[in-house]
Design a protein around this nucleic acid. Structure first.
Lengths: 240, 240
DNA sequence: GAGTGGTCTAGACCACAAT
DNA sequence: TTGTGGTCTAGACCACTCG
């Protein structure tokens, strides 16, 4: 497992070895790892070197340490999915609700100032405008307007627009979404929003705006959503 | 700057010292820090101890290292402050607004069911209840009710309640806040909230609930806040 | 060549958990 | 009391940058 002659740092070899065991299931949630002194003896390295490997895995959330007890494989998944960027479909499934979509409108338009800022496209270039009602367990949950540059995703169709946009982008187009900037604010439903969401005009709604970015920093989509205030609560795990 | 007799770890004292210098502007973006060996000599500690402090700051995005060149203050702020867990004061300062606080009420009460769930205290144990109006540039921004177990922070006073609770906890009490779970939802101002926030009853408000945890996973505080919907927009950076 | 961060050693004492 | 992780020491050699 460890080659002390290798130019690859020992701590890194050990780190990768442990990480692999977690990822391929040889170590799973809650398992106790050998103690730091055991690892040190096993591979004939210093305990500080072992600690460096384990430190990195703790920082990355793979392991947790408990003084006096030991080092354990972290729980992952459960807390993991609360953090991070999720699509509407993923979000609803995590809440044990069944997502669905109704398309209200889908067309190409000329970009205007709002999108030029968000998507960093040039004035007058073409973007898709997609308006959808997002349903959870058959009931309206959100009304969403999505803008994407046609040059990035030329083959967008009605069919793909029905499902999870993130799934489509990542699996079919092969682009990887890296991060997003999101804002949330409270407001009142306007008349048209109330009709679509089946709530009264003026009822509380949560406005969410999101710009998603690819790995190279290029903006992929700009989405404005209106969520029913009585049915939707946004939950997030924050680290300090 | 460093007290070797203190029970607070040396690396943590140094880490905090450097972080403070960055946060109050004594060190700014691009500045070169003293080398690890210089720090070690300066405070008569081992270089490994210095490295532990610097490692943490690098992981937190405050510093960057370049082999053969030195250690530098990272560019941060812009993206950094958007992520992560921030106090009201930190949040407002990041928006170039001046935070202030008015205490409405501060007392000890017996825990009831809501707090028993959130703070994991036993029924009937004592908690502080602190109600505050949070101001930004002299105007009401949020109305906040905070619960903390008296056993964790026995010395909480009116004076400390005036400022940043996170600053107090981290700098004076010496506890380290690790993460928090936060929910956001849209609602309407109730009568009393409207009066305090100087908005009309029924005006849109953003309800934020937060439970903060220490490093050992113990819940520290449970906070319910009502933010003015017309003045406050929550912004967050999400990774996929 | 001098200075920097990157890695590593072989110990040490402490606080904490379990027995 | 034993074993764990948490902190710390006083060195060492390496790879890299820069003058």
């Amino acid at each position: 497992m460890i080659d002390k002659q290798s130019p690859i740092p020992i701590y890194y070899q050990l780190e990768k070895g442990i990480k692999d065991m977690i990822e391929n299931g040889h170590l799973t949630q809650g398992d106790t790892l050998p103690s730091e002194r055991e690892y040190a003896e096993m591979f004939e390295v210093s305990r500080m070197t072992v600690r460096q490997a384990i430190n990195n895995l703790v920082n990355d959330g793979y392991l947790t340490r408990m003084r006096g007890k030991g080092t354990f494989v972290a729980s992952q998944k459960i807390e993991q999915t609360l953090k991070g960027l999720t699509s509407f479909s993923e979000d609803m499934r995590a809440r044990n609700m069944e997502p669905a979509t109704e398309i209200i409108d889908f067309k190409k338009i000329k970009a205007h100032s709002e999108m030029i800022d968000a998507l960093k496209v040039t004035e007058g270039s073409e973007v898709y405008e997609l308006k959808r009602v997002r349903l959870a367990d058959q009931l309206p949950m959100a009304y969403e307007t999505l803008y994407i540059s046609t040059s990035l995703v030329p083959g967008l169709t009605m069919e793909t627009a029905m499902g999870s946009f993130y799934q489509y982008i990542e699996h079919s187009v092969g682009l990887r979404i890296k991060n997003a900037t999101q804002t949330l604010e409270a407001s009142n439903a306007r008349k048209v929003e109330g009709e679509i969401l089946q709530i009264t005009e003026g009822a509380p709604v949560l406005l969410i705006e999101r710009t998603s970015f690819l790995e190279n920093g290029i903006p992929l989509e700009y989405v404005k959503s209106v969520y029913r205030g009585d049915r939707y609560k946004f939950t997030i795990e924050l680290d300090r």
